[in-house]
């Protein structure tokens, strides 16, 4: 634990759930915080498409209603990502990850384009199916070790989580964040409104970085 991510700088207590900041989790948290601030402050991009071989070009505008909703979803996604980065509890981490998956679907599903919505629908189904290994992994962790606290599991006072639970957790996060499917995410990135769509990518990258840490220490 200490070797991998440094000693906790400070912890925040919510009953049995601890939120802890180590150098590793704090830097991920700051990254999510910074990008959430960018999302709050920035205006969406306007995509310009040029018809090849002609002078014609047209700009795609994001309607104000859609902008508001997608900004709301991006901020919710940023908050969920921040929660997932610093959560010191396996079940709490899986809940935040599920929230990231849902908000990611929301960011792309608000775009009024059939192509993007088809991709968002498939993505939503994967996020839905991903909750099964995700929560299954957390359930096996608590059944086989008797505790959910990452600090307690990492400290060596509880028996280590079985490999199956770690594999299930990782697969669940892959489903929620679509980490290995960035090629398919390109379809969603064709949606106009740059900072919001990038939030999907950043959040899935961050939850994937965190699950690697969780799997290594528990």
């Amino acid at each position: 634990m200490i070797e991998l991510e440094g000693a906790p700088l400070f912890t925040l207590e919510f009953g049995d759930i601890l939120v802890y900041f180590t150098p590793y989790t704090a830097s991920l948290f700051l990254l999510a915080l910074l990008f959430t601030a960018i999302v709050v402050l920035s205006r969406p991009e306007r995509q310009v498409e040029i018809l090849f071989g002609t002078d014609a070009c047209y700009a795609k505008d994001t309607s104000i209603e859609e902008l508001r909703f997608r900004r709301f979803m991006s901020i919710a996604c940023g908050l969920a990502t921040m929660g997932a980065m610093v959560s010191g509890d396996v079940f709490d981490y899986t809940l935040f990850t599920a929230l990231v998956g849902v908000t990611n679907v929301g960011i792309v599903a608000a775009v009024k384009s059939r192509h993007v919505q088809n991709a968002a629908f498939q993505y939503g189904i994967v996020a839905l199916a991903g909750t099964l290994p995700l929560f299954g992994g957390a359930a096996i962790v608590v059944a086989s070790t008797g505790t959910l606290s990452i600090l307690r599991l990492a400290g060596g006072t509880a028996p280590g989580a079985p490999l199956l639970a770690k594999a299930l957790l990782t697969l669940g996060v892959m489903g929620e964040g679509m980490a290995p499917f960035y090629a398919a995410k390109a379809e969603m990135f064709r949606a106009p409104g740059a900072p919001y769509v990038i939030m999907c990518s950043l959040s899935s990258l961050l939850i994937f970085l965190r699950v690697i840490e969780v799997v290594l220490v528990i």
Partner: peptide, 28 residues
């Protein structure tokens, strides 16, 4: 994998493989 229609089958395949491996890892 860039075809988003393949996402769900791919993920389902990964889940099925992990479930089979999980059965081999039993008992927990």
């Amino acid at each position: 994998i860039s075809n988003y229609g393949n996402l769900m089958p791919l993920f389902a395949f990964a889940c099925a493989v992990l479930c089979l491996l999980g059965i081999l890892m039993l008992p927990v």
